[in-house]
Design a protein around this nucleic acid. Structure first.
Lengths: 194, 194
DNA sequence: GTCTATAATAGGATAGAC
DNA sequence: GTCTATCCTATTATAGAC
């Protein structure tokens, strides 16, 4: 498919914003990668914030489409969480948490509100739907929504480039999902943990 | 205790860097909060990067001291993880993951290396030590170090200001620790998750 | 639709007086 | 040690030609 310039800008800007964050990405850098001049961007977008907003909603919409497709597949509990997590890990070139920070700190209140609505629809709803289906499998003190939110939050820690020096462990999503489902403690010691 | 100007700069800069990140914090802003002029900072520190580095090592050293103190207390497995997590959540004014990103992206390679050594000593070692003590409680396929790294990574997702609109759940550390220890699935369904 | 030129602002950093 | 003055660079954004 051929992309018009507006879409190409969004695509390129998306890569850079996701990798580097909002502040560290300049409009000049985006333009340079596209072999256009920096003012040319302003024909397509009112300003940097509008471009970032368009990037976020395009990106997030794609996430939602793909998460829903994955959710529709017939797989085990483990496999489902793994494949959805794996997809998110691959699609976010880098740091989920930095993206949240940028949204909260660099965008206007109105834009934030819009973004958070889109966000909920595309990230939260697929997971919520899945956990609600499986609510009877969960320990009774956990609601489906609590489990869903905790999974996504936990997952967010695995959506970041594992930088030099292996500060954190390798990005071992399988272990994370396994611990999320079964915990770390041997069954025979469970009574002693509190 | 009275602080000299150098320490006061570190303290103020620490708040701002942790809250806003490296790029979003300007030397002018730091100076203004201290009622000194921006060039005065350069008497105490070679440049912004050196100031940030000093902030990080001071901050991290304090973390290590306090984590080790908490680790020495006699409490249950759950209580121990909760109190160490709770301490980290309180001490980091905001976004752990953004801080990692700043380290990897805004500092020189040499500085990064230094910081990561200090980091390991103060964040990782306390948790590693604790998990090694309790290794026999862990499911046999999990090593103490794997459990330790996964806990810290998971925890990092709870060390971020929960911004407007409750994107993620409330910062429910207790639920996180509980899931980490016991998992989300009812024992009778465990055989069906794979 | 994209260009050149340029405005307006803000950033980190240095020189030199006191 | 801290100040004023200032440099240099980089940023977002606009004006107007083509």
């Amino acid at each position: 498919m051929t992309l018009n310039m507006r879409d190409m800008i969004i695509e390129t800007a998306s890569e850079l914003f996701m990798k580097q964050g909002y502040l560290a990405t300049s409009t000049r850098q985006i333009a340079k990668k596209l072999n256009i001049t920096q003012p040319a961007l302003y024909f397509h977008f009112k300003n940097k914030e509008e471009l970032y907003t368009e990037v976020l909603s395009t990106f997030t919409h794609e996430i939602g489409v793909n998460l829903n497709a994955l959710m529709a597949q017939e797989t085990s509990f483990y496999q489902k969480l793994y494949s959805m997590g794996d997809y998110l890990q691959r699609s976010h070139v880098v740091n989920f948490s930095m993206m949240m920070h940028d949204i909260s700190n660099e965008l206007s209140e109105e834009t934030q509100f819009t973004i958070f609505i889109i966000w909920k629809k595309n990230y939260f709803d697929p997971f919520d739907t899945y956990f609600i289906q499986l609510e009877k499998w969960l320990r009774p003190e956990l609601s489906a929504l609590a489990a869903s939110r905790h999974f996504l939050r936990n997952l967010s820690a695995y959506i970041m480039e594992d930088q030099n020096y292996q500060m954190m462990s390798d990005l071992d999503l399988g272990t994370m999902v396994d611990i999320f489902l079964r915990g770390i403690v041997k069954p025979e010691y469970l009574s002693q943990i509190y």
